[in-house]
Simulated scan of single mutants.
Amino acid sequence: MCFSATASFIVGGSLIAVGAVTLKLVKEKRELAFAMIPLLFGVQQLVEGVLWSSFHYNIPDLRTAMTYMFTMFSHVLWPIYVPFAVGLLETDPWRCRAMWVFRFIGVSVSVHLLLLIILMPLNAVADQHVIYISPRLYEWPMMFLYITATCLVSLFSSHRIIRFFGALAILMFIISYAFYTVAFFSVWCFFAAILSVIILIFFRGRRGMPVT
């Protein structure tokens, strides 16, 4: 979490446990990617916990490694991963076709942001929050496409609870940017990590057919 190492480790460990329970509820291979989301968010939160520790113990090399690792999760993995994970759950033909549009956007966003991470300086500083600093990494046109790939895609799901997840993720994105502008990616990833518990609820409440 963006507020302390302790919070990050607690949230990360909890989400890994949630992810393990969620994976046990998987019935088909196509559900596996979606079920992995809480576990992956848990790992991401642990990475930020280690990053916090690198500030506390003044370990520059560890700080650099964890900064890059976190941004690989936040800026590169999620725009690709979420559209594919959500799309694999779909059986409705028009929704399946729509998912390919989001997948294309997600891949484009991830490649663009990866190039920025590689080519531009990247640093992290900590005060009350962790702030990830890099030129052009947060430009609004790309952020709009980012939120399209990671959040808006869920609104096209045939499953009501996944649409609910997407709507809440968009709301948390807006709140994070409005109130934690300089640290909004760290804050929003924390909120999104907490929201991933909804995925456990989805698998537990599933009745075998999409809820529309």
Rank of each mutant, 00 (worst) to 15 (best):
I16C: 10
G42Y: 06
F165D: 03
I131D: 01
V50P: 05
A65Q: 04
V130P: 04
L62T: 04
I201R: 13
F144P: 00
M120T: 10
G208Y: 02
V50G: 05
P210Q: 08
I118M: 14
A65I: 14
A192V: 11
F55D: 01
M172I: 05
A98F: 12
I105R: 06
S157V: 06
S4A: 09
V111R: 11
G13F: 02
T91D: 12
R160W: 11
P38T: 04
F102M: 03
Y81Q: 08
P141C: 05
A33P: 06
L32K: 14
I162W: 00
L114Q: 03
R30C: 02
R160Y: 10
T64Q: 14
L32V: 13
C96E: 08
L39V: 04
F156C: 13
L77R: 03
I170Y: 01
K24R: 15
W94V: 15
C151V: 09
N58P: 05
T150R: 11
A167S: 09
F70N: 01
W140R: 14
P141S: 01
L200E: 04
P60K: 01
V182Q: 11
K29N: 08
I80M: 15
D127H: 12
I118Y: 05
A5V: 03
G49L: 11
F191R: 03
F34W: 14
V18M: 01
V50R: 11
V86C: 13
F9G: 09
A126T: 05
V101H: 04
F73D: 02
T150S: 13
T6E: 05
I131H: 12
M142D: 08
L113F: 10
L25M: 14
E28L: 07
A193G: 14
S54I: 03
S110L: 07
G205Q: 11
L25H: 10
T181E: 09
A7G: 10
S14C: 14
V76Q: 08
F185W: 13
S8M: 04
A20K: 07
A35Q: 06
E31K: 09
I201Q: 10
A65S: 09
K29G: 03
L40T: 10
A193K: 06
A85Y: 06
L119P: 00
L152K: 08
A85R: 10
D61E: 14
L62H: 02
G12R: 04
G13L: 02
A85H: 09
G205K: 13
V26Q: 07
S8R: 11
I162A: 01
Y132N: 00
P210G: 03
F55S: 07
V130Y: 01
A124M: 00
F185T: 15
Y57N: 13
A33K: 13
G13Q: 11
F3Y: 15
P38L: 06
L15W: 00
W78G: 14
V76S: 05
R207C: 09
A149K: 08
V153K: 08
G19C: 00
A178L: 13
Y132F: 15
L46C: 15
F144V: 15
D61P: 00
A85L: 05
I59D: 07
